[in-house]
Amino acid sequence: MLLVLANPDDREALWLRTALVSLVDMPVEVLTPTRLICARSITHRLPSTSGGFRFEFADGGVLLAGEVAGLVNRMTTMPTAHLEFAAPVDRAYAEAELHAFLLGWLGSLACPMLNPPAPESLAGAWHSEVAALHLATLAGLNCAVASVDADAPFLPARTPAQMVHFVLDGKVIGPILPAGDRDALLQFGHLWGTRLLQVETARQGGKLTFVSASALPHYSLGGRALVRAMAEVLSA
């Protein structure tokens, strides 16, 4: 089966699930982080030759390593409500442990994943706005003049986005671009360090100008072309 790991109110995840169902010949299910964390029995074994993982949920359902053919990872928040009444020191420790477990578990999955987790974000590689501008510059995208200071930390207001593209495993999906601009987007995706990236840009003085990027895409903006490409990657 394909799993979409997302909060129950994540509209993009729900939209994607519906869109994927007609494109793959296997079940597509949404798994919430809360269901995952509140599983009655969690076992994760390393190295994976020792058995991988097993989640046994409160309703008797079971999730085994061999059942997951692909995973869409939108784990933006980690459920911690069950730790609410612990002493602050214990809660902080347990939260760090829970995060470390989830990062290790997601990182151990052998199936195709969009996007793989990263230490700075369970949902995949993340860069600050300052770092994103640097990567965009290195990739050859035009960037608005900017300066920043710890005492004046705010970057200039972003140019409104005019175009949205998705970089997925070396492909650019979205409105047709000149080859140079397409290459810059590919390079930007590579520097960002994730498989699927949404990039928003604008034309300024004829140059493709970087506006923002996210490893948590709005799939619906990419439409059928994006979902088809994702289905291909996830069922590989």
């Binding site: 994760h44 990182g107 151990s108």
Partner: peptide, 20 residues
């Protein structure tokens, strides 16, 4: 931040990792 996350990278680099 996660020993099990790092363990995956360690294993891919050819080291043994403890049964965990």
């Amino acid at each position: 931040m996660s020993k099990t996350y790092q363990a995956g990278i360690i294993h891919r680099c050819g080291f043994g990792i403890p049964e965990t």
